[in-house]
Design a protein around this nucleic acid. Structure first.
Length: 501
RNA sequence: GCGAGUGUAGUUCAAUGGUAGAACGACAGCCUUCCAAGCUGUAUAUGCGGGUUCGAUUCCCGUCACUCGCUCCA
């Protein structure tokens, strides 16, 4: 396997207009990226393909009937109670602090402090479950013989941060190694209303699925949703990642392709789960990711998300990104969320989130299988997969995008800038651009123009030459093989179209 | 968030306490040609802020960004 350096990928992305650092002229901003002309096309191609294959023409179910799927596009900001119900607000809002020396991290509320009653000397910090003889021993040692009685016990919250320099951390002997406690909630928040204060706090969604669940009843009641069915959504999501890193892989603003599939708890959940798992992996294969770069990772009991504890399992589809190779990193999760979300929303909203089987009149809370893919991670995977080193061509490499994903489908290149070539080229360009994204490039020599198209992964280059004027044929060059074929002008749009699927 | 490193044209690199160079890319002109990016020319850079200094891209401090290792990832 050839390993591609992320550095080369990042510089190509900037040089050719795929992806730029956000607010580049101001020095960038950690965790945010802008999509340039080609990156936008690529992302749209991936997004549209997902929407088609999931919503417009969803797969045929295991029993041979086409699945019912509904598309929604919900607001990024929702009532904060939604995130309370989903567990996102409480799940990760503890103030934490670090020890600079030992690199350990502590929850503020789990630490207790022994402060000298006379105010002389350092205060000593312990973990809340420290044994009393352990406390006694350590205090004696550090204070050179003083007893616990000379110390008063308090919680870390009562210590002013200006006094932190006099604190001795739980796992060290030196004072002043603890950092100030920091909120570690990973949700981005904002304030609603022009004068919004704390009471008007709202959150930018950390995933798109929350509002899929809250629309469950609308779909059932107003869109004739009959279980089993799915609700799908594409949209932005935001997380205050501790360490945004690896180009667009972990960014604070990203885009998701999410689908929640609601089924009868009496169904064979495992069968549905496997159905989606296989369908989703094959989908990535269809759009050009190679099998040996894809991997299924099954979550163990310990790292299951809070919503997935009850279910039949959780799998990640992982891709072998260059920055982690030979390891893999998550591209899409297929998780059994069981009845967690609908039950939670029923509890918090007081609205019945159940489904009635009208044939049996039986009410139940549906089971949910989630497929949650990162659109922006998908773009990165496509780019990494496509980057192909080839020392035998002028560009030194080419982007081997699947034709259906390539940002530009064809480039029209008159061999010379005179002799009537540009006129023919422009006519063809105006025809073809009605059907696909095409480039018209007239200037400079042909080798240079081929090389440029190779670098951005255009699958077909169409050349108008002397012979075109005689017999109305053009040459079509295929990117990967560089082989050429003569095609009549009347057929060239169809010729390319057929090869984009 | 911690630790280490890096920061010079669009990209990849050079150089210097005293005028910042190249290659590729871009653009213009020439060539009119089917691929080792033809020929000529033009424009473009020391991340940002402060300090030291007669003078800082170079030394120092801060900051921002990127890379690597930790940490985190509902």
């Amino acid at each position: 396997m050839t390993t591609v350096d992320m550095k080369d990928i990042v510089s190509l992305c900037k040089r050719r207009g795929f992806i730029f650092p956000a607010s580049d002229i101001y020095g960038g901003i950690n965790g945010f990226w802008d999509y340039g002309p080609l990156g936008t096309e690529l992302k749209n191609n991936l997004r549209d393909r997902w929407w088609k294959d999931m919503v417009l023409t969803p797969p045929i179910g295991p029993d041979g009937t086409p699945l019912q799927m509904f598309g929604v596009d919900t607001s990024i900001i929702q009532n904060p109670k939604l995130w309370k119900a989903s567990g996102h607000i409480d799940g990760f809002s503890d103030p934490m602090l670090d020890c600079r020396e030992t690199k350990k991290r502590y929850r503020e509320d789990k630490l207790i402090v022994y402060k000298p009653k006379d105010g002389q000397g350092n205060a000593i910090v312990f973990h809340e479950d420290a044994e009393s003889d352990e406390i006694e021993k350590r205090i004696k040692k550090i204070s050179k013989g003083q007893s616990v009685d000379n110390y008063e016990k308090t919680s870390l919250k009562n210590i002013d941060t200006t006094d932190y320099e006099n604190l001795i951390g739980p796992d060290t002997k030196t004072a002043g190694t603890l950092t100030e406690p920091r909120e570690f909630n990973l949700m981005l928040h904002t304030f609603l209303g022009a004068t919004g204060g704390e009471e008007n706090k709202a959150y930018l969604r950390p995933e798109t699925c929350g509002s899929i669940f809250t629309n469950f009843k609308n779909i059932v009641d107003n869109s004739r949703g009959k279980i089993p069915f799915g609700i799908a959504q594409i949209g932005k999501a935001f997380r205050n990642e501790v360490t945004p890193r690896n180009f667009i892989f972990r960014s604070r603003e990203f885009e998701q392709l999410e689908m929640q599939f609601f089924c009868d708890p009496k169904d064979n959940i495992k069968e549905w789960f496997n159905f989606w798992k296989d369908y989703r992996k094959n989908w990535w294969l269809k759009i050009g990711l190679s099998d040996n770069h894809l991997n299924f990772h099954e979550h163990t009991e310990d790292d299951l998300a809070h919503y997935a504890k009850e279910g039949v399992g959780a799998y990640d589809i992982e891709y072998q990104f260059p920055f982690i190779a030979p390891g893999f990193d998550e591209l899409e999760g297929i998780h059994d969320r069981s009845q967690f979300d609908l039950s939670q929303h029923e509890k918090f909203s007081g609205k019945k989130m159940q489904y009635q089987n009208l044939e049996t009149n039986e009410w139940y809370t549906p089971y949910v299988i989630e497929t949650s893919a990162g659109l922006t991670r998908g773009v990165l995977a496509l780019i990494c997969q496509a980057y192909t080193v080839d020392e035998n061509r002028p560009s030194g490499m080419y982007m081997n995008f699947h034709p259906s994903m390539a940002p530009k489908k064809a480039a029209i290149l008159p061999l010379t800038a005179k002799d009537g070539h540009p006129e023919v080229a422009q006519k063809l360009y105006l025809e073809m651009r009605e059907h696909m994204v095409v480039d018209l490039d007239i200037k400079q020599n042909i080798g240079k123009r081929y090389a440029r198209q190779d670098e951005i992964g255009t699958p077909f280059c169409i050349t108008i030459d002397g012979q075109t004027l005689e017999d109305q044929t053009v040459t079509v060059r295929e990117r990967n093989t560089m082989a050429q074929e003569r095609v009549h002008l009347d057929n060239v749009t169809e010729y390319v179209k057929k090869r984009l699927v």
